[in-house]
Design a protein around this nucleic acid. Structure first.
Lengths: 105, 105
DNA sequence: ACGGTATTTCTAGAATATTGGAAATATGGA
DNA sequence: TCCATATTTCCAATATTCTAGAAATACCGT
């Protein structure tokens, strides 16, 4: 993963409202959650919610599938995993002796 | 971890420059990196760099130790680990059947 | 085609973040 | 004490993000 992609994903998650949305989707698992249900749960105006979801989709952390009139959102686990891997990768490569740090990470 | 703390850490990492700084520190491992060396490596004006480091320190992702005239920065692995745990925790708790998702996460 | 529900796009004001020069502060050595 | 190096704080300009009302669009059932 390129650093700009990682930064974009982290930035997307680095907002209370968007992190709430993302966590709700993670908790929902495979079945996902429709936009309207997120709106009820989180009490966010529709346009604001739509903007936030859009940015999560834009960076690949969330995907959407239309089911007739409702749009169901899903957390994209692979995307998150890639991000986590990026964060801990190359730990200590610029340092010779860091066994403790490596096991900690 | 509270959601606001997690969001604050993610926001701190969600900026290209700060992510570069953080990654340089992760790569440096236990020995850490002085502020001045980061400045040379990343070619960032001192004041800008200082601002960014300050925000990483503020959220606990980075710690600093003074060694005579230089300030050495370290990536705080525990802090990162807590963040990663938060992100994947409670996966699927609102969904009955999601074994695939759970193993993927 | 029409009506209703779901959701997005348009728009714009307010709030916040980013940047970096200049001045201030910290540290240790001569 | 005085200097040199390291780093931060102050300040202000610029850029970006956040928010949400209103209008527009999408979809389906009738």
């Amino acid at each position: 993963m390129k650093i700009d992609d990682a930064a974009a994903r982290l930035e997307a998650l680095g907002n209370r409202t968007r992190l709430q949305i993302y966590r709700a989707l993670v908790r929902a698992g495979r079945s996902g959650t429709p936009v309207g249900r997120l709106q009820d749960k989180l009490k966010i105006p529709a346009s604001t919610l739509s903007h936030h979801i859009k940015s999560l989709v834009a960076v690949g952390l969330v995907s959407q599938v239309r089911e007739s009139t409702t749009l169901v959102c899903h957390a994209n686990y692979d995307s998150m995993q890639g991000l986590v891997d990026f964060l801990v990768s190359e730990c200590c490569v610029d340092e010779a002796e860091c066994k403790d740090a490596k096991t900690a990470a």
